[in-house]
Every structure is written in structure tokens, then in C-alpha cells.
């Protein structure tokens, strides 16, 4: 019983971390159709932003929840204005440009911080479930994921900015005709996607540590989740995360972390074969 509760929390945690690392990409790739191969590096930058801010004496919560999203969001806006905006609709060129950006960011962070693992100690301590102990930080990550997903859903559905963003992505020329500045909308949307990615990187930093090439560990999983989820940003990310996260964690528990990853990838292949448009291509079709 205790073990079941513990496993349940760990499955939730796996789902939450998958959703967190994918949400920003769901906006940038799912919504804006920009294949951002530097997504993993945005996560990495979020981790560094939090750790550096914490080193400068900022409270760890402010460093993770405020500083990291702002820093990476700002980097996102700069990247969009200087690189991405020239390449909308040119998928191959965007891939090449963002791949270059990814290598550049890895090189830059290596030069500044060194190619060494740095980390934070997870705050919050631990708690007991029967005879098992678990890091309380696990629950915090799950909470952040829920809040982030709910926040994005609410912003897209209930706010004017969300409506404008969705409209501009669907038909930029029409949005412009109605008095919206598409350039600004694109920049802000990309920035929001980057900020969410930075948040995820910061929140996961105490768990996995940060080093310049850590993005490689995340980027494939993020793309798999977003593609597996399909067109709808929040519903798609959530459903794909639930599916892949649960499979990954249960397989890991039953065997080893290696087979956990294999199970995740195998599930992704089967899913894309059965549902080429992702989960939300078939189910929850009109959701966001």
C-alpha cells in the first residue's frame, strides 16, 4: 500500500516533469510551427539562471520561479527578433538556425561556467509515506506543472492576449488587417514559450544538476511529447505526458532506467504509427 502510494507519486512526478519540459516547446513548435532545436539549451539556461541568481544571494524560490523565466523569456524575445522572425514558414532553415543557436549556447555557457555539473540542493526536505521517505520537492514539481498548464490554458482561453495570439498564429495577415501587430505577437508568444522553458529548467535543476550539454537529455523527450500530443497545446501536452510519463516510470521501476527510456521511445513510435496527428488529432479535437 505504501509502495503503491510512493509509486503513484513517482508516476505523477514523471508526468509532471515531462509536461514541464514540453510546455514551452508546445507553444513554440505546436502553436508557432517553429522547430526550435535550441529548446534543450533554453532549459539549460533556465537552470543556470536560477543557480547563478541563487549564488548572488537571491532566495531560491525567487531565483527559480521569477528570475529564470524572466531571463530565458528575454533571451527568447531577442532570439525571435534577431533570428527566428526572418525564417517563419521556412522549416528547414529554422532547424538549421536553431541548431546553430543550440551549439552557440552550449559553447557560450561552457566558456562562462565551464563544462562541469553544478547544482542546487533541493529545498523542502522530505516526508514519509508509511515506511518510505520521499523528497517533498517532488510534490513541488508536480504542483508547478499543474499551475503552469492551468495558467497557459486560462491565458489562451480567457484573456484577450491569448485570443489575439491564437488568431495571429492561424492567420497573420487577417490579424494584421484587424489592427494587430503580428511581429509583436510573434515575439511575445515566442518569449512566453521560452520563459516557460526557463521555468522548467530552473525547477528541475535541483533534481538533475545543470551542465552545458544537459539540453540533449531533454530535447528529444520534449519533441516526442509535443508531437505525440498533437495540435492542442495544453490538452496535447498533458495527454502525451500522462501516457509517456507513466510508461517510462513504471518500466523504470520494474526494470532499469535504460529500459524505461526504451519503453518511452517504443510507446512513442507506436503512438505516432496509430495516431499520426498525435493524441489530439483523434481525441479532444476542439480543445486547446
Amino acid at each position: 500500500m505504501d509502495l503503491a502510494a510512493l509509486l503513484g507519486i513517482q508516476v505523477l512526478y514523471a508526468i509532471a516533469s515531462l509536461a514541464l519540459i514540453s510546455l514551452g516547446l508546445a507553444i513554440i513548435f505546436g502553436m508557432m510551427k517553429v522547430i526550435n532545436l535550441a529548446h534543450g539549451e533554453f532549459l539549460m539556461l533556465g537552470g543556470y539562471a536560477a543557480i547563478e541568481a541563487n549564488k548572488l544571494g537571491l532566495n531560491i524560490w525567487i531565483a527559480m520561479l521569477v528570475v529564470a523565466p524572466i531571463v530565458v523569456g528575454a533571451i527568447g524575445v531577442i532570439v525571435e527578433r534577431t533570428i527566428i522572425r526572418w525564417l517563419y514558414g521556412r522549416i528547414i532553415d529554422t532547424m538549421l538556425a536553431t541548431w546553430g543557436l543550440s551549439l552557440f549556447l552550449i559553447g557560450l555557457t561552457t566558456a562562462i561556467f565551464g563544462n562541469t555539473t553544478v547544482g542546487l540542493s533541493a529545498p523542502l526536505g522530505s516526508f514519509e509515506i508509511g515506511r518510505y521517505r520521499l523528497s517533498a520537492y517532488t510534490l513541488f514539481v508536480i504542483a508547478v506543472a499543474v499551475v503552469a498548464l492551468a495558467g497557459v490554458l486560462a491565458a489562451l482561453r480567457f484573456t484577450r492576449a491569448g485570443l489575439i495570439a491564437r488568431g495571429t498564429m492561424q492567420n497573420g495577415a487577417m490579424a494584421a488587417a484587424l489592427g494587430v501587430n503580428p511581429g509583436r505577437v510573434y515575439a511575445v508568444t515566442f518569449g512566453v514559450g521560452a520563459a516557460l522553458t526557463g521555468l522548467a529548467g530552473a525547477v528541475l535543476a535541483p533534481v538533475s544538476g545543470v551542465f552545458p550539454t544537459i539540453g540533449a537529455a531533454y530535447v528529444a523527450k520534449s519533441f516526442i511529447t509535443v508531437i505525440g500530443g498533437g495540435a492542442a497545446i495544453v490538452t496535447g501536452t498533458t495527454s502525451a505526458s500522462i501516457l509517456f510519463g507513466a510508461i517510462n516510470q513504471l518500466a523504470t521501476y520494474a526494470t532499469t532506467p535504460v529500459f524505461g527510456e526504451v519503453a518511452l521511445l517504443a510507446a512513442a513510435i507506436v503512438l505516432i504509427r496509430v495516431l499520426p496527428q498525435g493524441v489530439t488529432g483523434r481525441f479532444f479535437r476542439r480543445s486547446l
Binding site: T117, G119, S126, V207, G209
Partner: peptide
């Protein structure tokens, strides 16, 4: 470097 996470997560779980 990656395996340092084990010690962190071990301690985080108390």
C-alpha cells in the same frame, strides 16, 4: 557528473 544527482536525490528524500 550526472550521477552526482543520485547523492542529491538520496539526501532530498532524507
Amino acid at each position: 557528473g550526472a550521477h552526482i544527482s543520485f547523492y542529491r536525490q538520496w539526501a532530498a528524500a532524507g
